[in-house]
Design a protein around this nucleic acid. Structure first.
Length: 495
RNA sequence: GGCCCCAUCGUCUAGUGGUUAGGACAUCAGGUUUUCAUCCUGAAAACCGGGGUUCGAUUCCCCGUGGGGCUGCCA
């Protein structure tokens, strides 16, 4: 039933520019993307800006940026040009719904001509009163179809008087809608629970229901994966498809992303915008890998997937039905995994941006020092935003209690001897040889059997901390001069 | 209220009409290490409940329960 080895499948992502791209939304997009790529089809990005009141300036651009950050590519739809302006590409456009109003109007009128839709002149007040009465009577709130009974003459008169109207779909309530969902299998809904859906609003804009059907048809969309909140709307869509005589696409309704309390993941649960993950330093590889496995898995024990690997292994039959809780701990594990494996080039460019956001105020280290810190810290993971703060002792002067220099029951005299030895050892390394490997080698040799006695005071002298990165790494990052100076300062403290 | 969807360790999940119910994250313990982290080893940890079908149900069916969603001139 789903096409295999067919190059003509076309899938889309159709965001509303009402806010930033939500992480749950990215997961849904990813499913569409993986399906399109796996079967060699097209991926399209269309803007659904039919709710004029809720449009947020700049949201569309931000959404596109998030998609690009995630590493997704598409052949048709809206995109950003080199100056960051929204442009359109592809031959099925326009891809912005507000530019397609004439199309929807024409299609809606066609439904009226064929007696499958009708004008409704009911005021919002009447609708609201009706709804309240129905709720009080414990009835399902639904339009009472008052305007279905209007005569031809009445309608003409009202239109002539420019009375505001909407266009509603005529739903045959005695029938039932049955369809096969790609994720959930057979679903049956009785039409008596389906309202005479508004297709065109009084401002002339289509509702989602009309626009999505018309556009998906005109843009030849073959498969639609979307969040399960759309499941109850499917009969409406199918009814519209049938009213037009359009061929149905395949639908697949994906479970939602939940917070750790099992509720729909929302802003209250922390930052859920894709751009926030990016800002905080999460790598797109980690985010993609993690969310791909929320609701889908390969049925093997493989946990690590690149985007390419996901495309290759994608199988819509392996999509899950149950909602998945978003667990930051697991995302962090992926983050650690990918951070460690970043090429130096990528690590440095990532780190540069991280320093700009989360660097230490009042300190402006050389680029090479930041790079050394990155190389050290990538092994130690933790919160991306803490990467520099965790090692602030390498960037700022240190303060510590003299006693901290003592390893177990060492005497001051012993500490002094060990620090002197460390100083001399480092002093003998030439400036140009002052690399991590060399430092580790000479210090380890100098320590011989007494690693604790030698390395602990040295590490404290260099870091001022009970817990820190290794003394080798401290010395390497600080450089020869700074390292010697810190050892001297430690020696002064125990005079 | 009505309708729809869902249900395996704390979390993401694998799996089967008969399994020691598997893996990963997190947790805990031990090891490595100058400390912390990493890393290695190990442990604890689950089939929502009740009926039915069956020689036998976590698995199939029904009913509950719980959770989620929809019920807008939002999407």
């Amino acid at each position: 039933m789903t096409l295999k080895n067919q190059s003509t499948c076309r899938l889309r992502f159709a965001p509303s520019p009402t806010g930033y791209l939500h992480i749950g939304n990215l997961r849904t997009i990813l499913t569409n993307y993986l399906f399109a790529r796996h079967y060699g089809g097209d991926f399209i990005v269309r803007l659904e800006d039919t709710d004029q009141a809720r449009i947020v300036q700049g949201a569309a651009k931000e959404i596109i940026k998030s998609l690009k950050w995630a590493g997704l590519e598409w052949e048709e739809g809206i995109d950003l040009d080199s100056r960051g302006q929204i442009v359109e590409k592809g031959s099925s456009g326009p891809y912005i719904q507000s530019k397609r109003l004439a199309i929807y109007q024409k299609m809606a009128e066609q439904l009226i001509r064929t007696d499958q839709a009708y004008y409704c002149f009911c005021s919002r007040k009447r609708l609201e009163n009706m709804r309240q009465t129905q709720i009080q009577r414990k009835q399902a709130p639904m339009y009472d179809r008052y305007c279905r009974q209007l005569t031809e003459a009445e309608i003409k008169k009202k239109l002539k008087n420019k009375e505001p109207y909407v266009i509603r779909l005529k739903v045959a309530r005695e029938e039932e809608t049955v369809f096969k969902d790609l994720v959930r299998g057979r679903i049956r809904i009785e039409n008596r629970v389906i309202d005479d859906q508004v297709l065109v609003k009084s401002d002339g804009f289509p509702t989602y229901h009309l626009a999505v059907v018309v556009d998906d048809h005109l843009m030849k969309i073959t498969h639609v994966f979307r969040s399960e909140e759309w499941l109850p709307s499917v009969p409406k869509h199918i009814l519209i498809y049938k009213a037009f005589g359009f061929k149905l696409p395949y639908f697949g309704h994906l479970p939602q992303l939940l917070n750790m309390n099992g509720k729909k993941l929302s802003k209250r649960d922390g930052e859920v915008a894709v751009k926030d993950f990016r800002y905080k330093g999460y790598l797109s590889e980690a985010v993609i890998n993690y969310i791909a496995l929320l609701g889908w898995n390969p049925k093997t024990t493989q946990e690590i997937f690149s985007l390419e690997e996901l495309v290759k292994q994608f199988d819509e039959r392996k999509l899950n039905k149950a909602g998945a809780k978003f667990d930051y701990a697991r995302l962090n594990w992926y983050q650690a995994y990918y951070l460690k494996r970043l090429t130096d080039e990528k690590l440095f460019s990532w780190g540069k941006a991280m320093w700009q956001r989360f660097g230490i105020q009042g300190v402006e280290p050389e680029q090479s020092k930041i790079e050394k810190i990155l190389l050290v810290q990538k092994q130690r993971v933790g919160e991306p935003a803490q990467i520099f703060k965790e090692v602030d002792y390498l960037l700022k002067p240190v303060k510590y209690a003299t006693d901290l220099l003592k390893w177990k029951n060492m005497s001051q005299q012993q500490v002094r001897e060990q620090l002197n030895k460390a100083w001399q050892t480092l002093d003998q390394v030439k400036e140009k040889d002052f690399e991590l490997e060399r430092i580790q080698q000479v210090l380890t040799e100098a320590a011989a059997e007494k690693r604790g006695e030698f390395l602990w005071p040295l590490r404290v002298a260099l870091s001022g901390k009970k817990q820190s990165v290794s003394p080798f790494e401290c010395a390497w990052v600080l450089g020869k001069k700074q390292s010697k100076k810190r050892i001297e300062q430690a020696l002064n403290k125990i005079k």
